[in-house]
Amino acid sequence: MKESEQELDAASLAARQRRFEEDLVDAYDEELEMEVDDRILDGGEGFTPEARELRKQYFRELFRLQGELVKLQDWIVKTGHRLVVIFEGRDAAGKGGAIKRITQRLNPRVCRVAALPAPNNRERTQWYFQRYVSHLPAGGEMVLFDRSWYNRAGVERVMGFCTDDEYDEFFRSVPEFEKMLVRSGIQIIKYWFSITDEEQEIRFQARIHDPLKQWKLSPMDLESRRRWERYTQAKEVMLQRSHIPEAPWWVVQAVDKKRARLNCIHHLLSQVPYHEIEHPSIVLPERVFHEDYSRHPVPDSMIVPDVF
């Protein structure tokens, strides 16, 4: 090979390596975009050397745990495991943020999120668990429920959306329902995200004053603030009456959002007996070129303008 060709290949390899690094940085930027609100809310202290070091530690651990989640995903696909993870907690407790970090690197065909709206008129006449059943995982899938059938034990009870008889029937049925799912081969992991009264107020105030987050506040959320103690009582009853060996509750201390995410992911990984799955080496095939093919130009009128 001529010297000029060697130099060209070296330059090409260097350019390709830069592209790989840029893609990696782009992935990190996604994380930073998700965290920027936290940094702003931290105020001036968010920029101290100690705070920067803590953020570096957080991202290092998050990326490491997300790598383990990919291994978990591969194991679930390989073994046909079925996994349900339930996330419950007060409004603004951080359930959604934890779910985002879990799913961010995973295949949405394998790891799905079920966040059901309020039941419609037809669903209100169905067996209570019926609308949740269709979201349960098939073999090789995991489903994360962002709120679940435990709505009846929480918001429906506190807001008066169910009768006393329906509430009592729920607690008679839910242990048997979950035992039935476990007997059928579905693993159930249930998390309650716990925050203080003061922390919820701070997060609600942040949403009120942030135009990008105001959509998260509903009239139901605001009413939940007034009924804090009733929610506490409902939570205590729920944990007591539905904490069963087949599907126990786990409480995530969630006042510190970042620690809560890391602790939750670490615990989730510890609950599944996964291991790394060996994959065959991947070789990118050569492009096939056809001399009789010529690419047609795209009309300028179809091009998105380069505004940025």
Rank of each mutant, 00 (worst) to 15 (best):
T196H: 03
Y231L: 10
E278L: 10
G96D: 08
H267S: 07
V288Q: 07
V298K: 10
W228L: 12
F47N: 05
H267M: 07
G160W: 07
I282H: 09
K71V: 02
R183T: 12
L41G: 03
R105F: 04
K95Q: 08
L106I: 09
R19D: 10
V304Q: 05
E246C: 11
H290V: 10
F161E: 01
N120E: 04
A51G: 06
Q240Y: 05
E30T: 13
Q66K: 08
Y28T: 11
H290W: 07
V307A: 06
K95R: 12
Y28C: 08
N120F: 05
L106M: 11
Y167N: 08
D26R: 13
Y293L: 15
P305D: 10
T163G: 06
G44C: 05
I86V: 15
W192G: 00
Y28G: 04
V158N: 01
K258F: 08
F289V: 15
Q126S: 07
F59D: 04
E169H: 08
V133H: 00
G89C: 05
R39K: 09
R230A: 15
T125V: 10
E278W: 02
E3K: 13
W192M: 03
F145Y: 09
L65N: 03
I102K: 00
Y293R: 14
K100S: 10
L144Y: 02
T163R: 04
K179E: 07
V143S: 06
V307I: 11
R64E: 13
D37H: 12
R259Y: 03
Q200E: 08
W215I: 12
Q240N: 10
A153K: 00
F308A: 11
E33N: 10
P248Y: 06
N121A: 15
A11G: 03
Q233A: 14
D256R: 10
F177E: 01
Y191K: 02
G46H: 04
P280C: 10
F129I: 01
I188E: 00
L13W: 04
R64I: 12
R203P: 06
G140S: 11
A11P: 00
I186V: 15
K100M: 07
F87R: 00
R19K: 11
E68V: 03
G185F: 02
L269I: 11
L268S: 04
Y128G: 01
S184C: 06
C264N: 09
P175E: 00
R295T: 13
D221N: 09
E141F: 08
S218N: 11
R157S: 05
P299Q: 07
F59V: 09
I277F: 02
R157T: 09
Q214N: 08
R101T: 11
R172A: 10
R18S: 10
K258G: 12
P108A: 13
A206P: 00
L144H: 01
M180T: 15
F20N: 07
T79V: 07
G97E: 12
E166Q: 15
G43F: 06
S224M: 05
E236P: 01
V84R: 01
V133I: 15
I202Y: 05
R295C: 12
F47C: 03
E291A: 14
L284F: 11
I102V: 15
A10P: 00
D168Q: 12
E198K: 14
L8C: 04
V84G: 01
R124E: 08
P245K: 05
G96H: 03
F204Y: 06
Y150N: 02
V298T: 15
E141I: 09
C111F: 02
S281T: 12
K2T: 14
G140V: 12
Y274W: 15
V36F: 01
R112V: 05
